Computed example of a mutant assay.
Amino acid sequence: MVTVVSHPLVQHKLSVMRDVRTGVKEFRELAGELSLLLAYEAMRDLELAPERLSTPLTSADFPMLSGKKLALVAILRAGLVMTDAITQLVPAAKVGHIGLYRDPETLAPVAYYNKLPADIAERRVFLTDPMLATGGSASAAIAFLKEAGATTIKLMCILAAPEGIAVIERDHPDVEIVVAAVDSHLNDHGYIVPGLGDAGDRIYGTK
């Protein structure tokens, strides 16, 4: 299942990120802001339960988060900007990291780091990566999460290509994808078109 967040604020901020004139500072800030807006939608189905609280006037039952605790897992390095932003919404969430890079020749994911919360199996997991291009890295990261015991996983991306979505739907049909937009296609180098370039390079100013 793919959820495209079509809110006007999301679409405007994404358009500014696409602009080649947008500098590192603004791009990074926009990525964080978009992540918050995506998280708002991705976490729409979190469980609530009534809890007795006292206001300055009286006591009553009010909805509070219940059910599984949360985990935010970033696919390094670009996913960090997303998890850092989302912790503003859910500061009690534990944070994990999966290090993957894409082999420039084969485009296959290569793992170099994997550090997850010890109780990942007991948490709802939100996996973050700004770009879902070939889908190889995200699929591999989801497989790592499942091997660690995670059973409830959502993939949050700023931008996706149909090819990447197809890979996740084939490999992990139980994982919902939440994105700001689905673009046209991948080019011969595995970049999303029209896209916004390399998200990691634009976030960290490395190119």
Results as ranks from 00 to 15, higher is better:
residue 153 I to F: 11
residue 85 A to E: 08
residue 143 A to Q: 15
residue 110 V to G: 13
residue 87 T to M: 02
residue 89 L to S: 10
residue 138 A to G: 11
residue 121 A to V: 09
residue 111 A to T: 15
residue 93 A to M: 02
residue 89 L to H: 11
residue 88 Q to H: 12
residue 154 K to W: 03
residue 55 T to P: 05
residue 54 S to T: 15
residue 67 G to D: 04
residue 86 I to K: 08
residue 83 T to F: 06
residue 43 M to S: 05
residue 136 G to S: 07
residue 93 A to F: 01
residue 109 P to H: 01
residue 134 T to F: 00
residue 88 Q to P: 12
residue 155 L to I: 07
residue 97 H to A: 13
residue 122 E to R: 05
residue 70 L to K: 03
residue 150 A to G: 07
residue 63 P to V: 02
residue 114 N to D: 15
residue 122 E to S: 06
residue 85 A to C: 12
residue 118 A to Q: 11
residue 115 K to L: 10
residue 129 D to P: 10
residue 57 L to V: 00
residue 54 S to V: 15
residue 138 A to L: 09
residue 96 G to A: 06
residue 91 P to C: 09
residue 121 A to S: 10
residue 76 L to F: 13
residue 130 P to Q: 08
residue 72 L to H: 07
residue 149 G to T: 12
residue 157 C to E: 00
residue 46 L to Q: 02
residue 62 F to E: 01
residue 102 R to V: 05
residue 86 I to N: 06
residue 68 K to A: 09
residue 45 D to Y: 03
residue 109 P to G: 03
residue 98 I to P: 12
residue 94 K to L: 05
residue 96 G to H: 04
residue 101 Y to Q: 10
residue 111 A to S: 14
residue 85 A to M: 10
residue 89 L to V: 13
residue 132 L to K: 00
residue 61 D to V: 08
residue 86 I to G: 04
residue 88 Q to W: 10
residue 151 T to P: 13
residue 140 A to Q: 14
residue 81 V to E: 14
residue 49 A to R: 07
residue 134 T to P: 01
residue 59 S to H: 03
residue 74 A to M: 07
residue 143 A to C: 15
residue 67 G to V: 03
